[in-house]
Design a protein around this nucleic acid. Structure first.
Lengths: 185, 185
DNA sequence: CCTCACATTGACTGATCGGTACATATTTTT
DNA sequence: AAAAATATGTACCGATCAGTCAATGTGAGG
């Protein structure tokens, strides 16, 4: 299996894990849906956990790329981008097959604090928080770290509720609170 | 098995499911940790899903009882109770073995929109939203439903982040935003 | 054309999954 | 106390779990 075949396998596993969950998805299914044998998978990943970690790495990359780019497209100013976060989220919530945040779900299924999957899931959130902190700093807020953390709370709350309610409205409801927080009514 | 034995079984299953996750926990483990045979469990619950639903019913009852009572203890006024929500959450986050919201995790593991476990998990959130709506109404806010929904977003965001970061700080960070929303600085 | 290295496979492992059949207590009713 | 009904434990079901292995296919270098 070539390098791009390996990437394709990870992409495929991502789709299946996102749709079915991690523990609920067997490696036999991943192999079948990817059109390869289980042995081929285990030639590239020593364990199922390693495959999951590779999937989460890809997801982290894809999601942050998409989100930050979309925020930039929606606004040139840093403060505007912080608000645009919620407009981007709304677009995501409206997508077909939207099932909430993959990292929240990974963290829910692998709860041990010292588990690699659990740690990597939280690392994704920290990377997003870092980006928000930089934007809040560039926008001139006195406590950029605190602002970023609070926006992250709004983001996670909107994601969880939109996934549970199958309703994208949480994005704009969270945005309204972000406007209060950022004092840009 | 008597009625209270049945309740004890549900209580026991709740602990195990909360600690281990739903799919990751086998019925053999539930039986062993409860000190009964699998047959006894299946005499009371036709399937594992039914046991999970019973567990979620108990959890919903326990959690709402505790949360609403604690909010009342912390403040007599409706608006004060809305803010006290986050002080109560902080106490919960600091508890030993805190692992986030059981309903969010259930919803993450059973994602189908028509799944009974998924629907019951969201129903729990709606019951909390209802209570917040009543409080917001009693406090005299013009749009109690919208206020309740936004507080729910703050609550869920704080729960998810505190679980992932193993840090209770999210409660007070969410409370700060609630103060902006409720205009009670 | 042949060989060697490697990718890939189907068949398999022991363990565990949710769930059950049946024989054996245990309790309730008469 | 006898009989009926209920609760329980043991031992098992086929399916699936993560993971492995010997055998086969394949492509490059000589």
């Amino acid at each position: 299996m070539s390098r791009n075949k390996r990437e394709e396998l990870i992409r495929n596993a991502l789709k299946i894990f996102y749709r079915n969950g991690f523990n609920a998805t067997g490696m036999d299914l991943v192999a079948k849906e990817s059109g390869v044998s289980k042995t081929s998978i285990y030639n590239h990943f020593r364990t199922k956990d390693e495959l999951i970690l590779a999937v989460l790495r890809l997801r982290d990359e894809n999601f942050r790329d998409w989100l930050f780019r979309r925020m930039e497209e929606l606004s040139a100013a840093p403060a505007g981008q912080l608000l645009a976060l919620f407009d981007a989220l709304e677009e995501w919530f409206a997508e077909d097959g939207y099932q909430g945040c993959m990292f929240v779900k990974a963290s829910a299924e692998f709860q041990d604090a010292d588990n690699a999957i659990n740690r990597q899931s939280y690392a994704h959130k920290l990377l997003i928080e870092d980006h928000l902190t930089q934007l809040a700093d560039a926008a001139g807020y006195a406590t950029p770290r605190a602002i970023a953390r609070q926006l992250l709370i709004l983001k996670e709350g909107a994601i969880v509720l939109s996934a549970m309610s199958h309703d994208k409205a949480a994005a704009q409801q969270a945005k309204a609170m972000a406007q209060l927080l950022l004092r840009v009514d």
